[in-house]
Amino acid sequence: MTKKVLIVLTNETRYQGTDDPTGLWLGEATEFAESMEQAGIKVDYVSPKGGFVPLDPRSMKYTNKSIMEFYETKDFQQRALTQSLRPDQINPADYSAIYYTGGHGVMWDFPDDPKLQKIALSIYNNDGYITSVCHGVAGLLNIKDNNGKYLIAGKTITGFTTAEEIIAGKKSVVPFLNKQEVEKRGGNFKKKRAYKEYAVQDGHFITGQNPFSPKAVARLLLKNIK
């Protein structure tokens, strides 16, 4: 039986310290989930607190027909946006991969969540894949192996770039810059042009650069688990 893929979503509703709303970048969840389902792979949705997942209002300006149709399904609205699972409801043995979505909110609730880190490490140690897109790379930063070493040390990964933060007008409000944090932990941060599709695989890590990359991450993952 093919194992499922676990999709991680944020519970953060605003850029901390401001009144500006944020949340899940919609397409980063729907495009990946739809790619999995089209390949016959089931997905589950988890968030640090479980339950309600807010949408980044800016992400609604960057939708298309397929994003909107997936968003409008009862399954996605219930299982992802209103009844996402809590980490303590997850059995890592059920999954062949974990996928961290983005939206700026994840920069606050993904990096220091020990329960999610434990799930990711367990999937990884069970020969599974750790994947992310855009700001979702924040979820990878502090996962450590059983010897206390950063899992991304020595790995080539990508995520939302400093240039992309500047273009988005958010460099002054984010709590950190992805490239700096990856490099601090010994990772090798690779990038392509701003806002172009790009995903990279290094062993059991598959990461995408920006909101245009969920399908590229999905394609690489499917090559490995199908």
Rank of each mutant, 00 (worst) to 15 (best):
Gln77Tyr: 11
Lys74Val: 11
Ile143Ala: 00
Gly105Tyr: 06
Tyr129Glu: 06
Tyr62Ile: 08
Lys170His: 04
Leu151Arg: 05
Asp56Ile: 09
Phe52Arg: 07
Leu177Ile: 14
Glu165Phe: 04
Thr162Asp: 07
Lys61Arg: 10
Tyr150Trp: 09
Gln78Val: 13
Ser96Gly: 10
Ser172Glu: 02
Asn125Glu: 07
Gly159Leu: 02
Gly50Ile: 07
Gly154Ser: 02
Phe110Arg: 01
Ser96His: 06
Ile167Glu: 09
Val182Arg: 02
Ser47Asp: 03
Lys74Cys: 14
Leu116Ala: 02
Gln78Gly: 07
Gly186Ser: 08
Arg79Thr: 14
Val106Glu: 00
Gly169Ala: 03
Tyr62Lys: 05
Lys49Leu: 08
Ile67Thr: 08
Gly148Lys: 13
Asn147Ile: 10
Ala93Leu: 11
Leu55Lys: 14
Ser132Met: 03
Gln180Thr: 14
Met68Thr: 14
Asn126His: 08
Val182Thr: 07
Asn126Cys: 10
Leu81Gly: 05
Asn125Val: 06
Ala153Tyr: 01
Pro87Phe: 08
Lys61Met: 11
Thr131Leu: 04
Phe70Glu: 06
Gln77Thr: 09
Asp94His: 14
Thr82Glu: 12
Glu181Phe: 01
Pro114Arg: 08
Ile130Pro: 02
Gly102Ser: 11
Arg86Asp: 06
Asp56His: 09
Gln78Leu: 08
Asn178Glu: 07
Thr158Val: 10
Phe160Asp: 00
Gly50Pro: 14
Thr161Asn: 00
Gly154Pro: 04
Gln83Asn: 11
Pro92Phe: 03
Lys74Ala: 13
Leu116Trp: 00
Asp88Leu: 12
Val106Trp: 00
Gln89Leu: 11
Gln78Met: 15
Arg86Glu: 12
Thr158His: 05
Ser84Gly: 13
Lys61Ala: 11
Asn178Val: 10
Arg79Asn: 12
Tyr150Asp: 01
Ile167Thr: 15
Thr161Tyr: 00
Glu72Asn: 15
Ile130Val: 11
Ala163Trp: 00
Tyr62Trp: 06
Arg58Ile: 13
Thr131Pro: 05
Val133Cys: 04
Ser66Asp: 05
Asp113Val: 10
Asn147Asp: 15
Thr73Phe: 07
Tyr71Asn: 15
Val133Tyr: 05
Tyr129Leu: 12
Val182Ile: 15
Asn178Phe: 04
Ile130Trp: 02
Arg86His: 12
Ile166Gln: 09
Pro48Phe: 12
Gln83Gly: 13
Thr131Ser: 12
Ile98Tyr: 05
Ser96Gln: 11
His104Ser: 01
Ile143Asn: 00
Ser47Phe: 06
Gln89Met: 14
Ile67Tyr: 09
Tyr129Cys: 12
Glu181Lys: 01
Tyr100Phe: 13
Glu69Val: 07
Glu181Met: 06
Ala163Ser: 04
Cys134Trp: 03
Ser122Gln: 05
Asn64Ile: 13
Gly169Arg: 04
Asn146Pro: 12
Ile152Met: 03
Ala138Val: 05
Thr63Ser: 06
Pro175Val: 14
Cys134Arg: 06
Arg79Val: 09
Arg58Gly: 07
